[in-house]
Structure formats: C-alpha cells, structure tokens
Design a binder for these strands. Structure first.
Lengths: 289, 289
DNA sequence: ACAAAAGTGTTGCGCATACACCCATGT
DNA sequence: ACATGGGTGTATGCGCAACACTTTTGT
C-alpha cells in the first residue's frame, strides 16, 4: 500500500492517455411503498410498491422515461456523486442505498460505450420528489419452456413488467434464459422490448429481485415504512414485495425481534386500535459486510 | 428501446469528449481449494482455501502482489474482457464467475482515477495456472469495540488477513466500522495496512465474504471441488470456508439433495472405502437472478 | 349488530442438533 | 489390533405452518 520510490518516479512519467476509457454513470433505482386510498372506511389502505422515473427531454431516448442518474465526477466518490445527483435533480435527501450491479453491455447506450454502476435506493412515502413521477408495478412471470437435459436443464422465462402512472403505461418484456449443464450455469437476461430508456428495465428488475431476496434475512423493508407503523402495515409491505399472502400470527412471531413496541395506538379507524411499533435499531448487531 | 429519429439526428452531432472519463479495470479474485499433503497414511488431506496473486514487475506497486486484472477493452463486454484476460495472462479457462462489487475510491490508484469492476472466480485444483502464485489464508477477526447507543450501536472490527506462499508472507490489516443509528447504517471498510497492491485486499475480503454467505443457500462450493468427490471431502470444503466444524450425519442429510451418488468408490486409503458423488445438476431449478 | 382489523393460543409436523453406534479398510 | 474415515439410526427440541378463537373499535 505504501508508494515506493520506484513508483514515484514512474508516476512523474505516467501518461493518463494511453488507455481507452469508457464513460461511466451512476444510476439509482428508487423505490417507495405508498398507501393506495380506499373508499371503505373500515378497510386499511393497500400498500403499493412504486419506482421513480424521470422524463427525458433530450436525446438519446428523448421522450422516454428513465431512472435517475448522472455521469460520474472524477473528483468525487461514486456514492457521493450519486448522493449529490439525487439531491440536486430530484430533491431526495433521506434514503437507504446499496450498490446493485455494474452494467456494461456494448450497445446499452447509443452514443458511446457507457458503463452504469447502479444502486438500489429506498425511501419512505413522506419524501416528496421533484422532476419525475412515481410508477406502479405490475409483474407477470411465465415459465414458458423447461427442458430437462442429460446433465442439466434449460429454462426460459418471460417477464412482463408494466409500469403505470395515471394514463401513462410503460410496457416492458424481458426474457431470462438459464442454461445449466453440469456445473456451468449460464444466465442471460435480455430485453425483448421496453418503453424505458437504455437498459433501465434491467436495473429495475435487478432492484426488485435484490429487495425480494433481502427481505427474508435483513431489515431492509423498514426503509420503506414511516418511523411508526402497525404490524399489519409491516405485513402488507412484505406481502406486496413478495407477492404472496402471509399468516398474521406467524408473521408477528417472526418479526418480533425486528421491532420495538411503542406506547402509542392508532384510532378512529372503524376497528380495534392497533399498537404502533418502530424498527429495533439493535437487531442486526452481528452483521457482516 | 427503439432509437427514434430525434435520437439519430442527435447521435450524428454527439461528441464523445465532453464528459470526464475514468479508467476502468476488471479484476478477478481467483480462489481454489487444495489438499494439504499429509504424512499419516490414514488421515485425509486437509482442505485449504487459496487465492491466486500475480507479482507486479512494473509500477505502480512494483514488486507487490496483486489480483489478476486488466484495463477494459471498449470493444468487448466486461465479462468477455475478463475471460480473455485470465485466459491470456494466466492460462485459466475453466471457472465459475460472478460480479462482486465496483470499487471507485478516489485514491485507490496513484496514477489516476481508476474504477475496478471486480469478480469472484472459483476454480478447482486441477487447473494449473501460469504467471502467479497461490497463497494460503489466515484470517483473524477481533471485535475490539462495541458501543450501544441510544438508538443504535457502533462496532469496530479489526480484520487481519495473512497470505502465505512458502517464505513469502503478506500481512494485511483492515478495519470495519459499523455505525448504526435508527435506520441509518453506515459501514466503512478501510485499509489500515496492506502488503498488496492497490486496495486489492478489500476485493479479497469481499470475495471471501460472498463465498461464505452463498455457501448456505447455493451450490457454489462445488465449483471448488473435482467432478467426483467424497462427502467428507465436501464437508471439509464447507468447514474450511466457514471456519467451523460440522456434524457428519447432519451434513449428509442437508446436502443429500445437492449430490448424486455414483457407483464408484475410493480405496487403498487405510480405512473403509468411500462412495464418490457428483454435483446434482438439477438441484437449483427454480433459481432466480 | 356487524365488518374489519388487532391480537393470542394451540397443535402437529418437519427439520436440525447432538450423540451413539456399527462398518470396512490397510498397515 | 487399531486408527481412521464411512455411514446409519434416533431421541429431543425448536421453529414454523395452519387454524381457531377472542378483543376492540366506528358506523
């Protein structure tokens, strides 16, 4: 790690220009969970997961929606560049963030070679953002072909992701091909068609998948909720992400370590008041990187 | 995804040069599992995890060991560039690969701003590589400070990673700082000191962590073993990665779905012959990305 | 009264842990 | 004979799925 004298000499002579360089962006898939309003005074509002997209006014992909991002600044870290980007462009200040994946396909940007270091951002519904819209999800996965081979298998899945904001509907069709023979497992995710700019529907798919997987063994979901919440709210949040129904009693037991009960209750709701909870900040003490 | 006419016009006028571009490398943390030879004719060889490092003959970090990598080629995908790199530089052809993390700290390369898209590569002990050495691991983690705060906690861990190849010993000291207050969790991994080039000890740490975590719920470990293996070999492999001892009977039950028994047995070993197994290629059929 | 959510209790099954035990082999 | 690994059986207990049931509120 220490820089030697040889290195110092070398650095004086070093020219920056001999290697080809790509452009690099940092891109943020921003998700939140909102309450869908409801006419029935008894019923709880339904939880819906949403993604934040901005409308592109300039080429490339003019008039298309895209995820928020920016070309990186060589004087800042990747993370800091992203923080500044979402703060300046869309007024987002409070969020959870983790690196997702670095996309580098050759033709993903029509201008030139551009790598995208993508991040998953989670925020709660109280943040009001500018210069973009929140889109609802609708996801359909159909496993349309499965071949069992001699020493493996081949699967093809069609993934239809429909994004909706009022009248605006964005259709996206991905195809996931898994080819497994022996130990060699090849997974290719390709875009069949997409109304989004670039390969951004892939980033969104990766983000959703990451969120789903981390739900089980981390406390990541709490980043989507307000500070105080009821256990049914928490459960609805899990159900919306997983796409399945959970049993109430069991859910309460499983999440009991993750939450701290408060001495506050909701009311005026057409049903029994419910206790409010907060995230237990001491839960994941033995976390690793 | 379709390129519009507006876009086409734009692209004709587009100049590639107006954004600052970083250099980008792809880097491979290559791990394998070998058998440590043994004098006792009865005893099974001990399994040891190793990492492959190359010796740097030129600045920067001349005379230091580093992970294998290369500056990217703008005419190739990241993955293909890496495949070619390990094939040409060190004659590695058969391996498991997955993207690890993209490192982008400002000072990680003394020359200029360089991003590293890092990959985890696993190979089995039969591949013989050129232009580099395999290093044994020794890892010590000490949790030296834990503060429980009002709404969270602060932990500092020292991580000592010693790499050894014959007489060559490389010492590395990392510090992991976790600051958790409420939902905000900040994890910083910093290099206290390292005998390796660049921040490569961080890549290695990430690789080990990924491997450890994926061990439980994937079949990733089989990439480290020969095609045919005994269950005790498999168990030793798990134990070496996890750093804990496992119970034999339970391990066999847990892994029974992952393997296929063969009608072959080892012999001439000073103990009862053991059945050979292969990886069950149809195990993870319902895998997701 | 009733619909909806809040919350508790119970039962049974499956799986993991821990341990005991027998088998087969080469020297 | 014996050390070593190969391999099986089983008791115990915990966790989770499934379901039943009670409580509390506003209209």
């Amino acid at each position: 790690m220490q820089i030697s004298n040889d290195d110092k000499k070398f650095l004086e002579l070093y020219s920056d220009s001999k290697y080809q360089k790509p452009s690099v962006t940092v891109d943020a898939v921003i998700l939140r969970m909102i309450d869908k309003e409801n006419d029935n005074y008894r019923k709880l509002p339904e939880k819906k997961l949403q993604v934040f997209l901005t409308y592109r006014k300039y080429p490339p992909f003019v008039d298309h929606y895209a995820v928020v991002g920016t070309f990186i600044d060589l004087n800042n870290t990747l993370e800091h560049t992203l923080d500044l980007c979402v703060k300046n462009k869309i007024s987002l200040n409070n969020f959870y963030k983790e690196q997702l994946f670095t996309f580098g396909d050759k033709q993903r940007d029509p201008r030139t070679r551009v790598l995208s270091v993508s991040y998953l951002l989670l925020t709660n519904a109280e943040e009001s953002l500018s210069n973009g819209e929140w889109f609802d999800f609708e996801i359909k996965q159909t496993e349309n072909k499965t071949e069992v081979l001699n020493d493996g298998y081949a699967v093809e899945k069609d993934i239809i992701i429909t994004l909706r904001n009022g009248e605006t509907i964005l259709n996206n069709h991905l195809k996931l091909k898994i080819n497994s023979s022996g130990l060699k497992m090849e997974k290719v995710l390709e875009i069949v068609s997409s109304d989004l700019a670039f390969d951004h529907i892939k980033l969104i798919y990766f983000a959703l998948d990451r969120l789903k997987n981390k739900l089980e063994y981390t406390d990541i979901a709490f980043n989507l909720l307000p500070q105080k919440f009821t256990l049914t709210e928490l459960k609805n949040c899990y159900e919306e992400i997983l796409g399945t129904k959970l049993l109430d009693a069991n859910f309460r037991r499983k999440t009991s370590d993750l939450v701290c009960p408060l001495n506050e209750f909701t009311g005026e709701k057409g049903h029994r008041p419910s206790q409010l909870f907060t995230h237990n900040p001491n839960w994941d003490r033995d976390a690793n990187f």
